[in-house]
Simulated scan of single mutants.
Amino acid sequence: MKESPVSRNIKTFRDQNGWSQLQLAEELNRSRATISKWETGNETPNMEALIQLSNIFDVSIDYLVGNHHQQDAYVKEFNRLYQLQKTDDELLEVVDYLKQNPKFKKSLHMYTKLNVKYQKTIEKNFRTLVEDLS
């Protein structure tokens, strides 16, 4: 079968959490073979499984199944919440990245709790690193 957004996302989120297929299967009370079928696109999770997966991975079902790119309602709400006059595509990409990378999101959250001196040091080092890579 053809890989779908949901199959790709299940594998991505499982990998990001450092779980094997068996570990995810145990968490969901399913078999490892079922997880494998979901990840290869040979089967699609039913609604109950999608709800469990979205809770475990801490993402919406829409996001899990691939309906997350520039949704009008989402963008409007985001703009309203953050009082943006127009869509900030870079900010949306960052939010999208953080949703897909929960470990980095936790690290970034820890960064926001540091005092300003440490934040400035980290920002300087990060800029240097990114400049060296580009």
Results as ranks from 00 to 15, higher is better:
Lys2Ile: 05
Glu3Pro: 05
Val6Ala: 04
Ser7Pro: 03
Ile10Pro: 01
Lys11Val: 01
Lys11Met: 06
Phe13Met: 06
Asp15Tyr: 09
Asn17Leu: 12
Asn17Glu: 11
Gly18Leu: 05
Gly18Arg: 06
Trp19His: 08
Ser20His: 03
Gln21Trp: 09
Gln21Ala: 11
Gln21Cys: 09
Leu22Tyr: 14
Leu22Arg: 15
Glu27His: 14
Arg30Val: 08
Ala33Asp: 15
Ile35Lys: 02
Ile35Gly: 01
Trp38Tyr: 15
Pro45Ile: 02
Asn46Cys: 07
Glu48Met: 04
Ile51Cys: 06
Ile51Leu: 10
Ile51Glu: 06
Leu53Asn: 02
Ser54Glu: 02
Asn55Gly: 11
Phe57Val: 00
Ser60Leu: 04
Ile61Trp: 01
Asp62Asn: 08
Tyr63Ile: 00
Tyr63Cys: 08
Val65Trp: 07
Gly66Phe: 08
Asn67Lys: 13
His68Ser: 13
His69Lys: 15
Lys76Ser: 11
Phe78Val: 01
Arg80His: 07
Leu81Arg: 06
Tyr82Gln: 03
Leu84Pro: 00
Leu84Asp: 02
Leu84Lys: 06
Gln85Lys: 10
Lys86Asp: 09
Thr87Leu: 10
Val95Lys: 07
Leu98Ile: 00
Pro102Tyr: 05
Lys103Cys: 03
Phe104Trp: 06
Ser107Phe: 11
Leu108Ile: 00
Met110Phe: 11
Tyr111His: 01
Tyr118Thr: 07
Glu123Gln: 04
Lys124Glu: 07
Asn125Lys: 14
Asn125Tyr: 13
Asn125Ile: 06
Arg127Glu: 14
Arg127His: 14
Arg127Gln: 14
Arg127Cys: 12
Thr128Gln: 15
Glu131Lys: 15
Asp132Thr: 11
Asp132Val: 09
Ser134Val: 13
Ser134Gln: 15
